[in-house]
Nucleic acid binder design. Structure first.
Lengths: 190, 190
DNA sequence: GTCTATAAGATGATAGAC
DNA sequence: GTCTATCATCTTATAGAC
C-alpha cells in the first residue's frame, strides 16, 4: 500500500472518523476543528495538512456516508425478491433506532443542517439521499407498482420522519414501531 | 394597553419576528444577533435590553410557534368530523410546501438542530411537537382506531419526512404528492 | 511530514454615555 | 429607555520552526 496523503498511522482516516462522529452528535457548525483533532489524537494545526478547509473535511465525511450507503445497497441486492430488499433496508434503519433517538439520522440531520448553510456541501449530501430513493424506486418498480417513485418517497419519508420524532422525543421505540408498520405495508403491496 | 417590556414601537415583537424568519432560513447557530437586529431595524446592542441572552430570544421564537400551533388546532376543532380535522391539518402543511422545500419545516428543522445543542431549548421545541401528536392521537381515537398513537406518529412522521426530502431535493412537489397520499390514507380508515 | 504559535475575523455579551 | 463603543472569547486558518 502506497503512502498517498502521507497517512502515517492513518491520521487522515482518524480525522474523518472523528469528524463523522462529532458532526452526527453536534452538527457541523457546533463541531470545531479543535474537537475533531483532539478526538482523533492529532494536533490542532495539523488538520490543515490533510484538509485545506473545514468544508473539505465535512465533504470527506459525506463521501464516507456515500461509500457506506452504496456498500449497503450492494449487500441488499443479494436478496432475490425486491420486497425483501426493501424490508431489509427498513430493518437496517430500525436497528439504528437507539442512535437515531439520541442524535437523529446521520444523513437526515446533516441534510437538514446543510440546507441552511451557504456552501455547496448540501449537494453532496443530497446525492446520497437520491441514491437511496432511486434504489427504492427501482425495487417498487420491480414489484410491479404503478407509482414507484411516490412509494419510494413515502417509505423514505416515513423513515426520516420517525427518526426525527424519535430524536425529538428521545424515544427509540418510535423508530421500531414505525418500522414494523412499514414492513407490514410493504407486504400488503405484494 | 400597558407598556410592559417597554415596547415602544413594538421593537420586542419585531425582534422576535426577525429572529423567527432568520432562524428558519439559516438555523439558530448561523443566525447572529447582528442580523436579527439589522433585520428588525433595531441597534445591535439594544437587543440585550429585551432579551438577556440569545437563548432567551430563541425561546421567544419557540413560544410564538407554540401560540400559532395552538391557535391552528383550535381552528380545526370547528370541524365536526375528526377525519376532516386531520385532513385539514395535512392540507395546511401541504400549503407550506414551497417554503418547506426552501428552508425545511420550521419546527422540524428547529428540533433537529436543537437536539444537537447543549441548552434546554430542545425541551421547549419538543413540547410543540407533542401538542400536535397528542392532538392527532385524539382525532384517531375519536375515529375509533385501535392504535391512535401509532397512527398519529405515522401521520406526523410522513409529514416531517416529506418536508425534509422536499428541502433536500428542493422539490415542493414532494410535499404536495405525499399530502395527497396521506389524505387518501385517512379516508381509507373511516 | 509534524507540530507550535499566532494571526485574522467573527460573535455573544457588557459598560456606560445620553 | 435607548444606543454606541468595546471587551472577551472562540474558531478558522496560516506562518514557520523543527
Amino acid at each position: 500500500m502506497s503512502d498517498l496523503h502521507g497517512n502515517r498511522g492513518g491520521k487522515r482516516e482518524r480525522l474523518i472518523q472523528s469528524a463523522q462522529l462529532l458532526v452526527h452528535q453536534q452538527g457541523v457548525q457546533r463541531t470545531t476543528l479543535a474537537q475533531v483533532a483532539a478526538n482523533a489524537q492529532v494536533p490542532v494545526g495539523n488538520v490543515y495538512y490533510y484538509f485545506k478547509t473545514k468544508d473539505e473535511l465535512v465533504a470527506a465525511v459525506i463521501a464516507t456516508y456515500d461509500d457506506e450507503m452504496r456498500a449497503m445497497l450492494v449487500m441488499l441486492e443479494r436478496r432475490p425478491e425486491p420486497a425483501d430488499r426493501l424490508k431489509a433496508l427498513t430493518r437496517h434503519w430500525a436497528d439504528m433506532g437507539e442512535i437515531s433517538a439520541r442524535y437523529g439520522c446521520p444523513m437526515g440531520s446533516l441534510c437538514s443542517e446543510l440546507d441552511k448553510a451557504d456552501g455547496a456541501l448540501d449537494r453532496d449530501a443530497e446525492r446520497i439521499m437520491a441514491i437511496v430513493v432511486d434504489w427504492a424506486e427501482e425495487q417498487f418498480r420491480q414489484m410491479g407498482q404503478r407509482e414507484p417513485r411516490d412509494l419510494a418517497i413515502a417509505l423514505f419519508s416515513s423513515v426520516q420522519g420517525s427518526a426525527l420524532l424519535a430524536n425529538t422525543f428521545r424515544d427509540p421505540d418510535i423508530v421500531a414501531r414505525q418500522a414494523r408498520r412499514l414492513e407490514d405495508w410493504i407486504d400488503s403491496l405484494t
